[in-house]
Amino acid sequence: MRLSRSAKITLRIFAAAVMAAIYLPLLLVIVNSFNATTSGAFPITDFTTRWWEAAFTNEGVREALWTSLRVATVATVIALLLGAMIAFALSRYEFFGKNTVNLLVVLPIALPGIVTGVALNNTFKTVLEPLGIGLGLFSVIVGHATFCIVMVFNNVQARLGRMNRGLEEAAMDMGANVIRAFFTVTLPGFKSAFLAGGLLAFALSFDEIVVTTFTAPPGTETLPIWIFNNMARPNQAPVVNVIAAVLVLLSMIPVYLSQRMTGDDRK
């Protein structure tokens, strides 16, 4: 498409403004984590790595990071298994209520997090706690898994829909049973969509705060919750900057990788 000169310039200015609005604050957080003054005053006069050291030796931060990693990893694994299985079942088999299942699986991403959170909170408190399963790491993982599944499911389902079903038939024609055909032909076909979905799920879980608030028991903090609880404390502000900087990097890497992966298959 050819654009006029003025249109090009206008587009560039808009793009630059949007980028600036998104990324300057992020940059500011990272820069500020090296600011020697605790008030975050600008311009920066003294650089220091003191806050980074403080952050890494902070017991609360370490615990929160460990919790976040465990939750994100387990939720992602659950999402990978269930998301891919549901996507495969929905795209390859006809059954009663298929559309309903499809809708129910993607709904959690559309529902406000607060609704999911309250619902899960109620379920655990009123139904599961009497059975011995109260709020805990498990309930946080379940909460995260509800929206992580959607990431994997959507990616895999889109890919399966575009894949040639004849390939599976060809595999069976040459002697592969259903399971062999799945692992030798279907899985390689959606592998990158599968991994990309997993990375997105991980990133999403890692910075989730709303559902976590409602499903975590008192005293259990993920990294975002720790930030939330400590932001208001003046002496913790610089450490919060450090954690925020780490979060930015940790969630951008998976998103970047998943973009690269889905881009790769398109050629």
Binding site: N164, G166, L167, E169, A170, A171, M172, D173, M174, G175, A176, N177, T184, V185, P188, G189
Partner: peptide, 27 residues
Amino acid sequence: PFERDVNTVFQDYALFPHLSVAENVGY
């Protein structure tokens, strides 16, 4: 299909895109 001594050449060929020609033939 995998229990029949019959093989098919599909209209759209259905070659496995992630395997080389030799791997396709050797599948």
